[in-house]
Design a protein around this nucleic acid. Structure first.
Lengths: 170, 170
DNA sequence: ATTTAATTGACAGTATACTGACAATATGGC
DNA sequence: GCCATATTGTCAGTATACTGTCAATTAAAT
C-alpha cells in the first residue's frame, strides 16, 4: 500500500537548503569584515568598489557594476557615499556627456592600502574553523560554482567590460 | 636586497576573497529562488519564516528570529508582510502581554505545501553545475562552516530556543 | 539627415540586514 | 511589595539589493 501522505515539513526544509547556508555565510562574512575593519569606516561593498576604481582608474559606474557584479542602482548610492567620504572623485567624461569617470583620491588610496591587512584577517577568519585542506577545497568549489552560475544572477560578472574605457582602437 | 615595495592591488583582492564569493552565491541563490517561485509571491526569507511557524505553531517573533538566525528588527517587517498576505495571524499571549504568538492560516499552510517543489528546484539548480560528488562535498563543508562560525554573526542560530514556547514544566 | 535603438545616470518603490533606542511588561533579589 | 534588571515588540536611521522607469545623450539604421 503506497504512502500518499505528504511528508511533514521539518526545519530541514530550511537548514539543509544551500540558499539558506549561503545567506548565513554572507551574514557571517559581513559581520567579520565590519568587526576587523571597524577603524576604517568602509563596508565590504565599498571596499570592493574602491579596489576596482584603484585598478581601473577612470572607469564609469555602469562598467564598475559589471566588473564586481553589483546592481547598477545600488552602486549609485555606494558611489555617493564614497564621494561623501572623499575617497573618490567623479569627473565628467569629455567625449560623452552622459558618463562620469571615477578616480581615487589620495585619501582613498591611503585607506585602501591601510585596510588591506584587516580585510585579509577577516577573510582568513571566516575559513579558520576548517582544516587547511578543506579550506582549499571549499574555496575551489565556491569559485567554480560562482563562475558556472554567473548568468543566473540578474547582474552577471563581466570582467572584460573593465578594459573598454582604455580606448578601443583595435 | 629585499623588495620593500607594496604589492600592487589587483582584482584578486576582490575575486578570490571568500566573502565576495559568498555574497555572489547569495545573490545567485536569491535570483534562482525568485525565478522558480515567481507564482507564489514569497521571498526566501518569508519562506523560511513560514516553514518555521509551520513547525513551531505559537512561536513568538523573538524566538523565531533565533531559530532562523534573522535579525529581530528585520523580522518585524517580514512578519508584517506575511500578515498582510494573510499567510499568518498574530494572537496575543494570554500569560504575557508583551508577546504575540504566530500561527499559519489555511492560506499559509496551502502556499507552503504548494511552493515546496519550486523551492526544491531552485535549491537543486544552484548546485546543478557541480558534479554530484562535489555538490555533496560543498554542502558538507558549508554546513560545517556555518555551524562553526555561528557565534561570529550578530544573531547566532539558537535552535533550542524553539522548544521553550511548548511549556517548561521540566 | 532623420528616425530609431541603446546607453548612462538618476529616481521611486519594495525587501532584506543591522544598530541603537524606547515604552510596556515581566522577573528576580531583597 | 519594591526596585533593579531583562525581555518583547517597535521604531528611526543607515546600507545593501533589485525592479522598473525616466530624461539626456549617443550610436545605428536607412
Amino acid at each position: 500500500m503506497p504512502n500518499n501522505k505528504p511528508a511533514p515539513v521539518t526545519m530541514d526544509a530550511v537548514y539543509t537548503a544551500p540558499g539558506y547556508l549561503f545567506r548565513r555565510m554572507q551574514q557571517i562574512a559581513v559581520a567579520l569584515f565590519i568587526e576587523e575593519c571597524r577603524a576604517f569606516d568602509l563596508t565590504p561593498v565599498q571596499y570592493a568598489a574602491l579596489v576596482t576604481i584603484s585598478t581601473h582608474p577612470g572607469i564609469d559606474a555602469t562598467r564598475l557594476s559589471a566588473v564586481i557584479a553589483f546592481d547598477r542602482s545600488t552602486l549609485g548610492n555606494v558611489i555617493e557615499r564614497l564621494q561623501a567620504k572623499e575617497f573618490i572623485v567623479r569627473k565628467p567624461a569629455p567625449e560623452d556627456k552622459r558618463v562620469k569617470l571615477l578616480y581615487l583620491t589620495k585619501a582613498g588610496a591611503a585607506v585602501l592600502s591601510e585596510i588591506m591587512p584587516s580585510v585579509d584577517k577577516a577573510q582568513a577568519r571566516m575559513l579558520q574553523p576548517l582544516k587547511p585542506a578543506d579550506r582549499k577545497t571549499l574555496l575551489a568549489l565556491l569559485t567554480q560554482l560562482v563562475d558556472l552560475n554567473n548568468e543566473a544572477s540578474r547582474v552577471p560578472l563581466r570582467a572584460e567590460d573593465a578594459l573598454e574605457h582604455l580606448g578601443r582602437s583595435g
